[in-house]
């Protein structure tokens, strides 16, 4: 193993005895992050048990929990997620794929940048939410609408990240490539790709989070199935427990996708992160 991690281990283990002492203060410190959720939960349950607020406004936490179990058992959540993930998968693949191509062209060629840059930036100014009503008129509630909107949401960040990464390949490295007379293939494989992959990947991460937002928006406003729709459906039934379960699922899936990509991102930069 490398020298640094050994050194770090030694520092951490210098006071093993001290670390094991559980003073009241230390316990308090450890439990502190749980205090707010706990207080909220207790207040919430009390308010619900005392019927201070109607169930249509604030369902008791236990009801939310049983609803969650019911929705998982009944398959509503799994079915909804299957639809949602299929949509985001296709949309993201189209958007990110075409974004990589346009981004690389914008980054590598001044001509493409001159002719297409302005148009791209103008269109990128319009948020996904703005595209939605236009696309709704064109495609209706069709599945195509979801793919196009998600593709658009992932397209923009991918293009920006890719073109910027290519433009920002350090000039000193380009000079080295010239001095070493690198053939085009090595130039791309040994310089352009490794230098741009970290930037492009973090762009893809942004793109996926934008795609996720677009998915939720389109499912809440213009769909008949999917996680977002489940929430809106719960709202129209005045079943706030379903709404809350939906929010938790959305949060968890979003978090899982982002941490997954962040892991891969770290690995891609191994030459920097791990000396």
């Amino acid at each position: 193993m490398n020298v640094r991690s050994v050194a770090v281990d030694r520092v951490v283990d210098r006071f093993p005895a001290v670390r094991r002492i559980w003073t009241a203060r230390a316990v308090g410190h450890r439990l502190l992050p749980l205090a707010i959720p706990l207080i909220v939960l207790i207040a919430w349950q009390c308010a619900a048990s005392l019927r201070l607020l109607p169930v249509q406004i604030l369902p008791p936490p236990l009801l939310v929990a049983t609803t969650a179990i019911d929705l998982i058992r009944g398959g509503e959540i799994v079915d909804g997620l299957r639809v949602s993930l299929w949509r985001i998968g296709i949309g993201f693949a189209i958007g990110a794929g075409s974004g990589l191509v346009l981004g690389a062209l914008l980054g590598l060629s001044r001509t493409v940048e001159a002719y297409c840059g302005l148009t791209f930036r103008l269109l990128a100014q319009i948020p996904s939410l703005g595209w939605l009503p236009i696309l709704l008129l064109i495609f209706g509630l069709d599945e195509t609408l979801k793919f196009v909107l998600i593709a658009k949401a992932s397209f923009v960040p991918t293009v920006i990240a890719t073109s910027e990464s290519v433009k920002q390949i350090p000039a000193p490295f380009r000079e080295v490539a010239r001095v070493l007379q690198l053939p085009a293939r090595s130039y791309l494989r040994r310089l352009v790709l490794p230098a741009t992959i970290p930037g492009i990947f973090s762009g893809l991460r942004t793109a996926l989070s934008h795609a996720w937002i677009a998915l939720i928006v389109v499912e809440m406003l213009a769909a008949t199935e999917g996680v977002g729709y489940t929430m809106v459906w719960g709202r129209t039934l005045f079943q706030i427990d379903i709404v809350i379960v939906g929010m938790v699922v959305i949060g968890l899936i979003g978090l899982a996708m982002d941490t997954g990509l962040a892991r891969i991102e770290q690995r891609l930069q191994h030459w920097e992160a791990r000396p």
């Binding site: 992050p33 959720p37 929430m231 979003g254």
Partner: peptide, 21 residues
Amino acid sequence: RASGGSFHALRQITLFAWIPL
């Protein structure tokens, strides 16, 4: 320490999903 965890947990929820609630 007290509010960071709750804050980051809430932050994970796509903003638009707050609207029904």
